[in-house]
Simulated assay, not measured.
Amino acid sequence: MSFAKEPPHQHGAVSGSAIVLVNLGTPDEPTRGAVRRYLKQFLSDPRVVEIPRAVWWFILNGVILPFRSGASAKKYASIWTRDGSPLRVHTSNQAMLLHDALRARGHGEVTVAMAMRYGSPSLPDVLARLKADGCERIAILPAYPQYSGTTTGSIWDAVFAHYRKIRNIPELRLIRNYHDHEGYIEALRQSVLAHWDAHGRGEKLVMSFHGVPKRTLLLGDPYHCECHKTARLLAARLKLKPEDYLVTFQSRFGKAEWLQPYTAPTVAQLARDGVRRLDVICPGFTSDCLETLEEIAMEVRHDFLENGGKQFQYIPCLNETPHWITALAEIAEQHMIGWPTMMSPSERALRQQDAAKGRESALAKGATE
């Protein structure tokens, strides 16, 4: 096996450290062709669909891609923004804000990059760029708080496949989960409280997580348990009683049984049972995307109202909220222990002086314009 060519070695060069924030992915544009390319890469991953490859190839290429790509493109178009895909926009912003937060905590020499498991910017391309930039210490931070082989496990597959072709592999740290991290739970709590302050509180709070086939739980995947632990911790922090909230699972695909209860029929039944005001949050998604903005805020909302509900409130994902960026910085910092990322007191003071001068200059310029 041949290895990729190494970048030129420079004696005396200072090695760098990096955090790579990895999300699931998104089509490049809301068109049938772009969605088809994205779905083909996503649904071809054996971590995502555990069906014999030969059988799945015919189902995917003969049924799903020809008939589902167009319908999915319309759904993506309904949430697309002027800046592009909401998931890519939020993840990119999170990476930039995480970089700033780490610098504010004294980590002056840390690169923060954003990558996608499927689509662009691809994880292998980002890892190759970091190597070319001299990063010899890399921490992989999935955007998934709860571990699942279908998500985080797939990221590890991509990382290992990339470095299998690299001769000089950097030091790697893989952040497995943070479903019970204090900062993550607090960010969720603050998000719910802020929404209740602004819009009032519903009769029940539904915590909807992305679904996976039930067989993954029976085969040892911890995702189901980690989702329920997140829900229990958040409920406790919100001082909710057991009857005040429900845990459900969304985005079921195919005829096999998935984790239950399913979100859409559960919400419809709540409306039929007399619940008039309902709040829904998706704790497993850290960035708003198709599954939250279209599936929950549009489709599930419609199901609730059609069955007699009066007020449906979707609580947005953590996105760029300050408490979430702080939590991200804490998670990243915990996994960089021992790395030479901290600035000396004199360097930090000098950086702060330069930043202050920059702000003063900007203010003075604004005053004269």
Rank of each mutant, 00 (worst) to 15 (best):
M298I: 08
I140F: 12
K74I: 04
S154P: 10
A332G: 11
G70T: 01
P8M: 12
L43R: 09
T152D: 05
T230Q: 08
L290K: 12
P142E: 11
R167P: 01
E295P: 02
E257I: 06
L363I: 07
P8R: 11
G202Q: 05
A264H: 10
E291A: 03
R103E: 12
I166E: 12
G12V: 06
S69R: 08
I138V: 14
R276E: 08
Q10H: 09
E29V: 02
V89W: 07
A268K: 00
H162V: 00
A256D: 14
K255R: 12
A115S: 12
P170A: 12
C317R: 02
R88V: 03
N168G: 06
A34R: 04
R277H: 08
I155N: 09
T248L: 09
S122G: 15
I331D: 10
S191Q: 14
V22R: 04
A268D: 05
K75P: 00
P30R: 08
R189T: 10
R201S: 11
I185L: 15
I296S: 01
R167L: 01
D83H: 15
L193V: 14
L328S: 00
K214G: 05
P283D: 01
L87N: 06
L290S: 10
A329S: 12
V267E: 07
L290G: 07
N61F: 10
K241E: 15
L123V: 01
K74L: 13
E186P: 00
W80E: 05
L259N: 00
G254V: 03
A355T: 06
F160E: 11
D157S: 12
A356S: 06
L278Q: 00
